[in-house]
Simulated assay, not measured.
Amino acid sequence: MSIVAALIVPLALAQSAAAPTGAIGERFAQCLALIEENPVRAYEEGMAWAGEAQSVHAYRCAAMALIAQNRFDEGARRLQSLASAVNPENTGLRAELWSQAGNAWLLGREPGQARSNFTRAITAVGNDPGQLPDLLIDRARAYAMERDWRPAEEDLSRALDIRPNDPLALRLRAASRMNQRSYELAEADARAAIRIEPGNEENTLVLGDIRESIRTGTPFERN
């Protein structure tokens, strides 16, 4: 997955009413496409657009262009600032920006910062079943990066209560349970993920890790 793709998540948020439309939407899409080709130029174009129109989406594209240059800290902080500046009534856009900031912090291996941003996004969307599962999954990824397995499992279970057949949530919960030595539950999750998504090798790898953990009695750690 490219850096741009990683930041245009969760999909439910990207397709929400917060997504830009019309001429702004077209220009934003062009700016995102340019990030893939030339992130330095995309940053310059985004800032020029921001100077012209003061559009939040122009500043957002510029922030994403920074992240595509591996300037994760700068880009994430800009996205956070944008989210805080957006009208509080525009919960969809605020949640989207905080989610993108959280993913940027994950790319920068800063799970504490990521978790904080995902929590803000979760608070913004409330109990919206279309948006909440992806945000819970992302926050679980931050917890897992911190090796805080219990809250990771709790977020994933909550996501699965809303969207039961999510193979990513099942796979991640399997890993979280394995690391808590709940091997039978972990194996059940991994097998469920394989049934739903048999072509994904990551599901099979997690099942193999769990079986190795059962064999040795110690959670398997992949290098």
Rank of each mutant, 00 (worst) to 15 (best):
L32I: 07
E96N: 07
V40E: 15
A42D: 13
N38Q: 14
D189I: 02
R141P: 08
N200I: 05
L160S: 05
L93S: 02
S116D: 00
A85G: 09
C31H: 07
A76P: 02
R109D: 11
A42F: 03
L34H: 14
R27N: 09
G92W: 10
A6D: 14
G217D: 04
E184F: 07
F118A: 11
E37P: 09
R77P: 05
N179F: 06
I24T: 15
R60W: 15
L168V: 06
M145P: 13
L172H: 11
G75H: 13
P88A: 02
N90C: 12
D148N: 15
F220R: 09
P164R: 15
L168I: 09
P10C: 14
E153L: 13
R158C: 00
Q131P: 07
L170D: 05
E154P: 03
L160D: 05
S157D: 13
E201Y: 02
T216V: 02
L13F: 09
A53C: 07
S84A: 12
Q30T: 14
E197V: 09
A159L: 09
A193F: 14
G126R: 07
Q15H: 00
G108R: 01
L107Y: 04
S55V: 13
A169C: 14
W149Y: 09
L185A: 02
A121I: 11
R78F: 10
I3M: 13
L66A: 03
Q54S: 08
V40F: 13
L207M: 11
E212V: 05
R94F: 09
L82P: 10
Q30I: 09
A85F: 05
Q80H: 09
R71S: 08
S176Q: 04
P167V: 08
N87T: 10
C31T: 07
E110N: 15
A192H: 03
V206S: 11
M145T: 00
T91W: 04
S84I: 00
E212W: 10
A159P: 01
G126S: 05
E187L: 14
Y59A: 13
D209K: 02
N165V: 00
G102V: 03
A53Y: 10
V9S: 11
R191H: 04
R173T: 12
R177C: 01
L207Q: 02
P167Y: 07
R171K: 10
Q100V: 01
A5L: 12
P39L: 10
L79S: 05
A152C: 08
L136N: 06
A42Q: 12
R163V: 10
L107F: 05
G217W: 04
D166Y: 12
I137K: 03
A76F: 12
R158H: 04
E154T: 11
E36S: 14
R77S: 08
R147A: 10
